[in-house]
Amino acid sequence: MNTPANVAELSEEECWERLTANSLGRLATAVAGDTDIFPVNYYADGKTLLIRTAPGTKLLELTIHHDVAFEIDGYTDDEAWSVIVKGVAAQLESQTEIDEADRQPLVPWIPTLKYRYVRITPLSISGRHFRRDAEPERY
């Protein structure tokens, strides 16, 4: 049973600290009752998340249904954490926005051309921190 001693809620500031310190997460979309989860690299500026993508399923789903969920996590031998962002995704359209996005430290992890930027504006951010201990006795 989890107790306050081994599970703690992260503050919004602590969630942003983890988001800005990392660059790989999972983006969840749902269209017509079908849910997809995509691994993506991203850039967090402390207010929004920015991803790069190419034309395909991910971009199509983001343009059909803008509500998304985004998750990152991490762990060591002694602790683990998870941050979830629920928000609205929008493809950057103006050249000013695209030029600004080009200046961010966001490059594809694999050698592919990805010229489409999508910004996720959070509606809610939550996180948990877990102390990893041995499983308690069952009986």
Rank of each mutant, 00 (worst) to 15 (best):
P108T: 03
Q91K: 14
A80N: 10
W81S: 04
E71F: 11
L123Q: 10
L27M: 10
P108Y: 07
A89S: 10
E93S: 13
L49S: 04
Y115F: 13
T112I: 03
L59Y: 08
D77G: 12
P122R: 05
R26D: 00
I110T: 01
T29N: 02
L59H: 07
W109M: 12
G33L: 04
D73E: 13
D45V: 06
Y117L: 08
V88P: 03
R138W: 06
Y117H: 12
L113Q: 13
A44T: 02
P55L: 09
P111E: 04
I110V: 05
L62P: 00
E71V: 11
W109P: 01
L27F: 11
E71H: 05
I84C: 07
A32L: 10
D133S: 15
D102R: 15
E137G: 07
A69K: 05
D73M: 02
E79S: 15
W16D: 02
L27Q: 02
I72C: 01
S126I: 02
P108I: 03
K86R: 15
E13C: 00
T3N: 08
N6L: 14
A5D: 12
W109E: 05
N22F: 01
D36M: 07
V31T: 08
D34V: 15
L10Q: 02
L92W: 13
E71R: 08
A5T: 11
S82R: 03
T29M: 03
L123D: 12
A80C: 13
R116V: 15
P111M: 03
Y139W: 09
P108F: 06
R128K: 13
A134Y: 13
R131P: 04
R26H: 06
L62F: 05
T96I: 14
R138H: 09
A30M: 09
I37L: 00
I125E: 02
M1D: 06
V40S: 02
H66A: 13
N6S: 11
A54L: 13
I64M: 07
M1Y: 08
R119N: 08
E79C: 11
A80I: 00
R131A: 15
E79G: 14
S82E: 02
E61Q: 13
D34I: 14
T35H: 05
I125W: 01
V107L: 14
V118A: 05
A69C: 07
K58I: 01
K47P: 00
R116G: 09
L62N: 04
P108A: 04
N22M: 06
T20S: 11
T3K: 08
Y43A: 07
I64N: 01
V7N: 10
G74M: 10
